[in-house]
Design a protein around this nucleic acid. Structure first.
Lengths: 264, 264
DNA sequence: AAATTCAATTCCATTAAATGGAATATCCGG
DNA sequence: CCGGATATTCCATTTAATGGAATTGAATTT
């Protein structure tokens, strides 16, 4: 009985939850899946799934392509543009991120913790002709990103453990942390210094230093980071920026408490 | 009977539709609304709305802020990032947009028609440190944007009329088209030349030339444009680019028919 | 501090909508 | 034109959403 309830609360509860689960399946597919393919990955019966897909298409959350494959719909972009432009936390952080970028000359990221992942909220980078939007909205793992490790370090013990326990340690590079204990050790260091580092743990040649941002009650947890290519940014340079990044995080927290009210 | 069915299909049908309607209300609010405010704008009863909000928060489509106001949630960004990165039409168009940008030196936009609006899908611009996400996902009116007018010009007659009929002509600038007849006249010219222009109709100082993109059966309709500031881009320059923009649109359509199969 | 007001939340009998197994229609390659 | 796979529709059953009313909670005033 209890096990039944526990599994039920896991995901896909209610009509909306199931619809989101379907979106998730399609988002996770490497190519636009067709009906039968989605049916296989979902645990819904034919009739049900078909109607769900029809509804999602009707709402513009999915596009159905001429070959009957499904891809995420344009209304998601529409809502996301609104979400991004209107997000108060991001708006508060924005000037601080710009300042940090000016002082360091390297790329600055802002990310929030959500469902055991980092979701990048904003990015300020140099005048590179790289494609934009490369990062915003992207969900990345906690254990191999500066923002992720910074964020997790300020979580209440119980939640931190939950995050760590549910982590699967994919080895992105030779420097990627290998298991929960390595992560726990590193988090202790982050707690002491107030800074997290990514030492080419996610991508070879990319380094970063980050600092945590959080509400007093820790229900909201985020992070800010400066990222640069290893050839241009030495480990020492990175450490030199640590205080600056912490300062940016603190300034953002100050602004939050004054603008959103201190009882967060 | 028929009227009942017609009005029912309008909006907010089914559980999912109602949820989206709530998201829409919150997206449209100039500031994060609280429960009672949303209640007033929606036509749902208290209990119903409250549970809908709770569900949306649970799915990460809404955030609830410490002062009990609601803003759009981070999962929308997550899904949108996926939608953007995976969108095949955008991927096909991408190199063509870059090329058009290189040839003109001005900002290039790609937008699709959806629910009588243009939704911008991509943007290629010069090395400006302008904010990202400034345009992508944004929904703009048809009658005063190059992409919008280009798109509407290739719609089947019936749908075009539906779009025009439901348009309200807000006067953004002195050059904004004033009514349905002016729009109809202009569309006739676009059909002949294959190019649409925005002559400071949406924003003073901004000009643009666009061309339509469409599937053979016209169920998919989009547009590509080159936009620039009036002080740098004369009306003549713009006309000089018209063929180039049409060429880009045609090249994209060619790629579409080869990559997505010709029976679109 | 008690009283008043306004907003948010919970409850639960009723109602409406989602479900899902099976039948049917449609597409595609041979 | 046929056979096999895929997508779509149907409708009795089940499950989840509904919504009016009562409760809780928080802020404001007397």
């Amino acid at each position: 009985m209890t096990s039944k309830k526990a599994s039920a609360s896991k995901s896909g509860t209610g009509t909306l939850g199931k619809a989101m689960a379907v979106l998730g399946i399609i988002a996770a597919s490497p190519h636009p899946p067709r009906f039968t393919e989605i049916l296989r990955k979902s645990d819904q019966p034919r009739g049900t799934l078909h109607r769900q897909l029809t509804n999602l298409v009707e709402e513009g959350l999915l596009n159905i392509r001429p070959d009957m494959s499904y891809e995420l719909g344009y209304n998601l972009l529409k809502f996301a543009a609104s979400a991004w432009a209107g997000n108060e936390f991001r708006l508060i952080a924005e000037p601080h991120l710009s300042r940090l970028h000016e002082l360091t000359g390297e790329t600055v990221h802002l990310g929030v913790l959500r469902d055991g992942q980092v979701i990048y909220l904003d990015k300020v980078e140099g005048t590179q002709s790289v494609r934009m939007y490369s990062q915003i909205g992207n969900a990345s793992p906690l254990y191999c990103t500066g923002v992720g490790k910074a964020a997790i370090s300020v979580l209440p013990q119980a939640e931190m453990e939950k995050c760590i326990a549910s982590t699967i340690f994919h080895k992105y590079t030779d420097h990627t942390l290998k298991n929960a204990n390595e992560l726990r050790t590193e988090i202790e260091q982050i707690k002491l210094s107030g800074n997290a580092y990514d030492r080419e743990e996610h991508e070879i040649g990319i380094r970063c230093v980050a600092a945590p941002i959080y509400s007093p009650n820790r229900t909201f947890v985020a992070g800010v980071s400066v990222t640069g290519p290893a050839y241009r940014v030495s480990a020492d340079t990175l450490e030199g920026w640590a205080g600056l990044v912490r300062g940016t995080a603190n300034a953002i927290m100050d602004d939050m408490s004054t603008r959103l009210g201190p009882r967060t």
